[in-house]
Design a protein around this nucleic acid. Structure first.
Lengths: 253, 253
DNA sequence: GGTGATTTGTCCGTATGTATC
DNA sequence: GGATACATACGGACAAATCAC
């Protein structure tokens, strides 16, 4: 392809576009501007679709096409029966995945109403023994986190630590707030490297039940192994996210 | 909870487990060992489920439970009508997302049979003007990549660059192999920072058609803005992945 | 816990313009 | 020019989720 020729072709494209840019694109631009200018602020609800359509002088269908585009760009999100909301840009300006230990606490687009914590002990499965390079006589401490929004479980996260790694600390396993602080501190002080595997999985019975989603629903899964300064695997964490409640960021240099 | 008491409780748990560990767990362990030991190598097909079940002396149902666990751990993947395959561990030992420019080329779990490349020119939409801080008189070059496995589109990726950024280079827009090399080199030499937004989206008509998936199918979406050494946004890339063909890694320190 | 109002989700029918052959 | 297919746009109707009372 000759560059001059394609330049011509593209100018034609420009001219044509000016005449026939679809209405929903310009509506998209209008709403984008209103968000930009602060007419609709972070986390705020947009006017109802009927109202907004009337305001913008388009049909509801056209408005919805524009709203879908905005959703696709992560600028708004919506909830049936509630409305359309401007996505809080908190995460965008703060640290991304590259500097965050526990993703469930950072990348939720709505605030949690509740976090359930459960602590238990487990014998290590073969896979766990291999990952954490331990034998079957050692015990694992299992932390189980369930994150909730409006009576719905939106994230289920498990964290396995070798008991002999944290047994020495004085931790009250009942005080869940302190417990989470402890874990956070423990990770911050003892972990130097996290290998994360990210994939989308169709969940089966166990996880489907935990998150109360239909089986075969697709969830985002973070499978993480955390290594100490000495390169020893200490923690394995696995988190399942209901996709419509999360948005992740990563900063690469 | 008292630590001694919970230790007792957990020992009980251990004892119980020894007796009634489900069969599919031990089958899971067996297969894991076989993969570990190289009986089944990277990318290799496992024996058919009927055969394997007979080999391991369990029912096909039990075997399948174990296979599902292995899938959940990303160790194998399966394809209806073809079989179960050991996931290539290439990505696991190489660099993760933190050091990769173009994710579609690194995180596919099967080899691509084909990559389609298309080049076009576009006028900048409002959003694009804002992102790339340009006015509407400027042109964008659009690169469009479609990654294919066995006649199926598994990833669709677009890359927008300001024309004035690459117009000076002598690039033959028809030689697609050289084109991809050029882009890769351009990014490597001119980009110092990439901000990635990761989310799972229900795709509508346009993308659904590009990847030939039913509408409302959930795809993983990477929305990226690439910045030059001077902190200027130069490239916007957007990639959609069919989730069953990809697995991502991230190394955080 | 039930009821009704509000809000989004979905579907239908109709009409128009555009691209393709 | 004609036939066809498709995207765009509007309006109406009902379903489903949410919330306030």
């Amino acid at each position: 392809m000759d560059n001059d020729k394609s330049m011509e072709k593209s100018k034609d494209l420009l001219k044509n576009r000016k005449v026939k840019a679809p209405l929903y694109i310009s509506v998209y631009g209008d709403i984008l501007n209103m968000i930009k200018e602060g007419t609709f602020k972070n986390g705020a609800k947009l006017p109802g679709e009927y109202t907004l359509a009337k305001q913008l002088n388009v049909s509801r269908g056209t408005l919805r096409q524009a709203l879908l585009l905005l959703q696709e760009d992560g600028l708004i999100y919506n909830r049936q029966g509630k409305g359309n909301f401007v996505t809080s840009s908190k995460a965008k300006i703060e640290e991304g995945l590259e500097g965050v230990f526990h993703a469930p606490l950072r990348f939720n687009i709505e605030k949690y109403d509740d976090i359930l914590v459960n602590v238990d002990f487990r014998a290590a499965t073969k896979k766990m023994q291999e990952i954490l390079s331990m034998d079957s006589s050692k015990l694992l401490v299992l932390f189980e986190f369930t994150y909730r929004i409006k009576e719905q479980n939106v994230c289920y996260s498990t964290l396995f630590i070798r008991y002999d790694n944290i047994g020495g600390f004085e931790v009250d396993l009942n005080d869940k707030v302190k417990l989470m602080d402890f874990i956070h501190n423990y990770i911050e002080n003892n972990i130097s490297n996290i290998l994360t595997n990210i994939r989308v999985v169709s969940v089966r019975d166990f996880i489907a039940k935990k998150l109360n989603v239909p089986p075969d629903d697709k969830l985002l899964c973070f499978d993480e192994i955390m290594y100490s300064n000495e390169g020893v695997a200490i923690i394995r964490a696995k988190s399942y996210f209901r996709t419509e409640y999360y948005e992740f960021f990563l900063n690469r240099k």
